[in-house]
Structures are given as structure tokens and as C-alpha cells.
Design a protein around this nucleic acid. Structure first.
Length: 154
DNA sequence: GCCAACGTTGGC
DNA sequence: GCCAACGTTGGC
């Protein structure tokens, strides 16, 4: 069992959107970064727990928890010319981009904001607070997950 | 909206 | 395979 952090812009898709879908399940499409793709394709497994992180918004931080219920499979939007994520170079019999399905687990009472996360010790290794921090899919170590979850208001 | 820090692209 | 130009990300 592994732990992850998925970023999303709440204006496009938020933790509330996930919670409000009838089966509370959504495919995490649109990832167009090779490192993130490799995580989705090779490492994200059924049962893994996922922090949902809101970026590019007023209240940046971890907002909730989801769980992986389907492992990597082709992201259909890469083949849709009208999609913002269309990739004309991707071949139907050799898809370049994959996605996973996740299901809502809980929304925290408060956002665990980035500022707080940065102030936490023993968490320096999480990609989120390292230089760059641009991956939209990143692994979280178990001890980091435990520390972060402990700070979340459930 | 700014801008630093990246990743990607493409000419050579 | 190098690397400059370009596009994107994301906090502020």
C-alpha cells in the first residue's frame, strides 16, 4: 500500500465535486507529464490512499482523502481532438497517457494549508515543499502521510 | 497578473 | 546529444 498526493485546481475540479458525484468516483484524466504518467502507469495501485490537494486558489493545501479503485488505463481524452488534453501524437494502439479511478473518502473540516505543511518538521522530503514542486502526482512516504493526516481535522 | 522554476521541443 | 526558446505550473 502506497500513499500519494494529487493536485487539482478547485475551479476545474474540487474535492466537493468528487464528493457530489453519485458514486463519488472519478477518473483522474488529463495528466500530461511523463514522470506523473509513470507513477500512474507503474506504481499507483488499488487501495492506495490519495491526499487531494487544491492548487492555484485562495486556500492552497490538502483538503481531503480519496482511494484508488482502478489502476492505470488509457486516458481517453488524448484521442479527442476537441479535448484540451488532446495529443495528436498518441497512438490508439499505443496510448501515451494513462489515468486511474479514485473514490472519495473524506473531506477534512479544514484545509491543511501549504504554509502549515512547510512549517512541519520531518516532512522536508515531500515533493510538495521541495524546490520545483511542480508534479501533479507525487508519492508520499508513510511517515509523511501519518504526520500529515494527524494534522488534518477530520 | 507576476515571475521563478521547471519540462518540452526542435534546430543543429 | 546539446541547448536556447518556448510553454506551463503554481505560489504569491
Amino acid at each position: 500500500m502506497q500513499y500519494w498526493l494529487f493536485k487539482t485546481e478547485p475551479d476545474a475540479f474540487s474535492i466537493d465535486d468528487l464528493a457530489n458525484i453519485p458514486d463519488q468516483t472519478e477518473h483522474w484524466d488529463g495528466i500530461r507529464n511523463y514522470q506523473a504518467r509513470n507513477f500512474l502507469r507503474d506504481d499507483v495501485k488499488i487501495g492506495d490512499l490519495v491526499f487531494i490537494y487544491h492548487s492555484s486558489c485562495k486556500n492552497v493545501g490538502i483538503v481531503g482523502l480519496a482511494q484508488v479503485i482502478k489502476e492505470g488505463y488509457p486516458d481517453h481524452t488524448q484521442f479527442e481532438p476537441e479535448s484540451q488534453h488532446y495529443d495528436p501524437k498518441s497512438l490508439i494502439d499505443n496510448p501515451r497517457w494513462v489515468m486511474v479511478d479514485i473514490q472519495f473518502r473524506q473531506k477534512f473540516k479544514e484545509t491543511l494549508d501549504l504554509k502549515t505543511i512547510k512549517q512541519m518538521t520531518s516532512i522536508e522530503q515531500i515533493g510538495l515543499v521541495k524546490k520545483g514542486h511542480r508534479l501533479s502526482i507525487m508519492p508520499v512516504q508513510k511517515h509523511e502521510f501519518d504526520l500529515l493526516l494527524k494534522r488534518c481535522v477530520i
